[in-house]
Design a protein around this nucleic acid. Sequence first.
DNA 1: AGCTATTTCTACGCTCTGTAGAACTCGTTC
DNA 2: GAACGAGTTCTACAGAGCGTAGAAATAGCT
Lengths: 118, 118
Amino acid sequence: MPGLGDLERSVMDVLWDSHEARSAYDVQNALAADSERPLAATTVLTVLSRLEKKGFVRRERVERPHRYSAVASREDHMAELMHEVLGGADDRQAVLARFVGQVSPAEAEALRKLLSAN
Amino acid sequence: MPGLGDLERSVMDVLWDSHEARSAYDVQNALAADSERPLAATTVLTVLSRLEKKGFVRRERVERPHRYSAVASREDHMAELMHEVLGGADDRQAVLARFVGQVSPAEAEALRKLLSAN
DNA sequence: AGCTATTTCTACGCTCTGTAGAACTCGTTC
DNA sequence: GAACGAGTTCTACAGAGCGTAGAAATAGCT
């Protein structure tokens, strides 16, 4: 249930950026584009397996190159993380107060709209 | 820059719950109250030192039993964590939309008030 | 049945965290 | 001022998580 490591997060980013299911090779190539040294195929597979075990990634074993996809969208994931933080608070309202106190005016306005849209 | 471990969080909780600066012994006793097995004094000191290095705790070395206190309030800390999560998003508004979409009606109302209070 | 692409198993080094003994320091006592 | 004791710093180690990948197993194709 812990968070994500650096490489794990990079892999999630790849899956999030291409909204379809991807093979391990796709992920490997996408990662290679960003960094000099390419990762071994097994490394990518290991990370994907760990992400699956953690519940962040879904794997389709139908075709031979298995396809992987993110369980939740990046936005849902992040919103969930924020709720997790908030969940550990005894005084949620106080935390929310501090939180909205630090958002930019533009974002405050956006929040107002979101909340009134109801 | 990583997060907090279980014991580290417990120590922070002690400091947060008593809003004044506390000695390591105070922390040790508070922790002993919650769990069966008491921790060694050095363990508490080590954790407090690590928390200081991480910037979560401030230490006053004036008196002989040093006094420790939380740098930020629990609420500020949590709001900060939420902003950290949000900071990693490319589309912040989308994350905020998901986030407010999952708050309870009561909290949504509270948020409305907080935002209109400008 | 054998070759090749892919996946699973196993493993190792590094960092972080919980845990604490050993060693050191500083104010107080004889 | 030498010894003592409370408190602090140093050093250490084990376990978990993660990056990393070779070795071994598997599965489809020829």
